[in-house]
């Protein structure tokens, strides 16, 4: 489903980034990097409303020809970025429908980010993980991989 998943620290350095296929890794790194500006923009645009609502899902950040980039930000300003293949109609159709209905919660994108967030929380709770380090967790790896192969 997703082709690249990245976790970005509050200070905008990568904590975790993984993509399939691996040969295009650099391209995805650029893509995620570019998206950070959009994330910042969205956060400052939503400003207080975002904090009040505790709405963490930023939705579609920007589409490119082949891919779509989605974003999510936690209350501690850790960002999750997901690059999805545009040809994946299953995600897109549902997305459009529910956005017009005005409820993010029903979108598969939202649920994927929730899953990612929960898994990230578990990583943070591991006493052997130092906050701010790169994430090297087998459980997190497996979860990310499962999200990437889901529909492909």
């Amino acid at each position: 489903m997703a082709v690249c998943i990245a976790v970005i620290a509050k200070e905008n350095y990568p904590l975790y980034i993984r993509s399939t296929p691996t040969e295009n890794e650099l391209k995805f790194h650029y893509m995620v990097h570019t998206s950070l500006d959009v994330v910042d923009e969205k956060i400052s645009a939503m400003g207080k409303a975002l904090v009040d609502q505790r709405e963490l899902y930023l939705g579609l950040l920007y589409p490119t020809e082949d891919y779509k980039v989605y974003g999510y930000v936690t209350n501690s300003k850790v960002k999750f970025v997901m690059v999805v293949d545009s040809s994946n109609t299953a995600l897109r159709d549902n997305e459009i429908r529910s956005v017009s209905a005005g409820d993010w919660r029903t979108t598969p994108g939202w649920w994927m980010f929730r899953k990612l967030h929960n898994s990230y929380t578990d990583v943070m709770c591991n006493p052997f993980y130092n906050p701010g380090d790169r994430i090297q967790s087998r459980a997190f790896d497996n979860m990310v991989m499962s999200m990437m192969i889901q529909v492909c």
Binding site: D122, V123, C125, N126, P127, F128, Y129, Q136, S137, R138, A139
Partner: peptide, 10 residues
């Protein structure tokens, strides 16, 4: 051991 993953060096 909830949450815990042993690092390789331990």
């Amino acid at each position: 051991v909830d949450f815990v993953e042993l690092p390789d060096n331990h």
